[in-house]
Design a protein around this nucleic acid. Sequence first.
DNA 1: GCATAATCCTACTTCTTCGATAGGAATAAT
DNA 2: ATTATTCCTATCGAAGAAGTAGGATTATGC
Lengths: 153, 153
Amino acid sequence: MTMQVSARGDYAVRAAVALASAHPDTVSAQTLADEQSLPHKFLEAVLADLRRAGLVRSVRGADGGYRLAHSPTTTTVGAILRAVDGPLAGVRGQRPEDVTYGGAAAHLPDLWIAVRAAVRNVLDEVTLAQVASGKLPARVRRLVTAPDAWEPR
Amino acid sequence: MTMQVSARGDYAVRAAVALASAHPDTVSAQTLADEQSLPHKFLEAVLADLRRAGLVRSVRGADGGYRLAHSPTTTTVGAILRAVDGPLAGVRGQRPEDVTYGGAAAHLPDLWIAVRAAVRNVLDEVTLAQVASGKLPARVRRLVTAPDAWEPR
DNA sequence: GCATAATCCTACTTCTTCGATAGGAATAAT
DNA sequence: ATTATTCCTATCGAAGAAGTAGGATTATGC
């Protein structure tokens, strides 16, 4: 199990946060790509995912672009990531509640569920507006300021 | 960002838990593979990783096999996963503390750090003995029994 | 000594996914 | 018309994941 932020996920969140801070204006993919140093064409594909998920609205034609479909204060990072990368957690491609083990590992699914819940408690509670402003919820902030949170392991 | 348990990680933890429940006996890879229905040769490679990481000791020759190098009550699931899959969390292959963003996403690293801390708080606190017995620490148990922890999203 | 059962080592295959690019069609503003 | 955009399809190369193959090495028990 590793928690990897893919390029897709990273780009999607960065673009979404940029849209949040420009909200409710519409911003072109080119501008987003320049601001955040993202590959333009790749970003287009990512934004298309967000649009299909209903998180972002697009406007075609000159002076078109993208804007958030809902308020930055209600759109969570978790929603963005699910839209581009699928479910937040999985075990060998399956959902944690679907795996079953025999013998000594019988209780292992409990642990996978716990990890997923821990991740959700962060990603589904933090909104784009909070990331843009840097004002994370107290419970999340506490994780960041814990003594060894910045230590590699 | 998605928290994916790879086959390597899954197999490693299952084998380690099985070793924990047999501790301090040594168990052959073949037996482990049979008990947990794992591909034998692949499991060998995984156990080799655990050995190189010093988490498991091996005994060669007939009647040989593997055993935990330390007590099941001190070996954590996090340690097992790191041994086979590398760091628990990453952003586009880099460590969360190494990425930097400009513009609206400037505070984003805080969020990645928080997610990693949340994951560590589970995986580095749960030991193989606890998984084998099903007696997870209270804080982790609470995550599992939360109302919608078993709901897909 | 010899058969047997294990770990250990190297290499290989196959498949999928990830990240990214290319080219152009449709759309709308000026 | 021109220009700036989204949108669609197709393609590409590299890397990794999952698993297999074959045999060399090591120890046990007869």
